[in-house]
């Protein structure tokens, strides 16, 4: 564990709490892409098939939290606050993402086993899981401030992981090219959002696309 990785994980936790706060406070999931949340649930379930493999208490508790919270968010969006979800705004075709990621995982992986291919699939899928949300944002052209805080925390978590990998490469000679490539792409997807968040939200304005 190092500073960057711990901070990244805490930002990831924070992003989920901000999302839950947004839904509970406004009693609405408007502006949130169900498809992105569905993809995150798929990411956690396929990645943490090794849940019973012991690494540390921290690792196990975080995995349980990520699986449970992602499924709870699906419940909130699909059942509890179903009336506030507008599918006509959430039109990104996730079938292509799922298919492409599965294909890539079958071709580019460390070991061709069931668990390992699904782990690789989850890494690729996480990299692009935010696309339906960003697509929805670009369609509506604006977002509630709390929703942008959620996206910022999520993007910061990815950016900090890049620093963690640089740190681990120099201190442990840790190499994990699948995670590096996917993580770099994932962070790059946030660059436009970061720019507008910095220009508008941090200066007290509403998040609006130019």
């Amino acid at each position: 564990m190092n500073f960057f990785r711990l901070t990244a994980d805490l930002m990831h936790l924070l992003s989920i709490f901000v999302l839950l706060l947004k839904i509970q406070k406004t009693r609405s999931c408007s502006g949130i892409s169900f498809k992105t949340q569905l993809l995150y649930a798929v990411v956690f379930v396929t990645r943490y098939l090794d849940l019973l493999k012991w690494i540390s208490l921290y690792n196990t508790l975080m995995k349980i939290f990520f699986i449970a919270s992602s499924i709870y968010i699906l419940y909130l969006m699909k059942i509890k606050f179903r009336a506030t979800y507008d599918p006509s705004q959430d039109t990104f075709r996730i079938e292509f993402l799922l298919g492409a990621c599965l294909l890539l995982a079958l071709v580019f992986n460390y070991t061709f086993t069931f668990i390992e291919v699904l782990w690789t699939f989850s890494i690729y899928l996480e990299a692009v899981a935010i696309l339906p949300q960003l697509f929805m944002l670009s369609r509506t052209g604006e977002a509630e401030t709390i929703t942008t805080h959620y996206l910022f925390a999520l993007g910061a978590y990815r950016g900090l992981y890049l620093l963690n990998w640089i740190w681990r490469f120099y201190t442990e000679h840790h190499i994990d090219w699948i995670v590096w490539v996917a993580g770099a792409i994932q962070t790059a997807l946030y660059s436009d959002f970061f720019y507008i968040y910095y220009k508008k939200v941090l200066h007290g304005q509403k998040f609006e696309l130019p």
Binding site: R5, D9, W119, I175, D176, W177, I178, V179
Partner: peptide, 10 residues
């Protein structure tokens, strides 16, 4: 050095 196959990151 640690193997990437251990997947110790979240």
């Amino acid at each position: 050095s640690s193997s990437p196959k251990t997947h110790d990151e979240l």
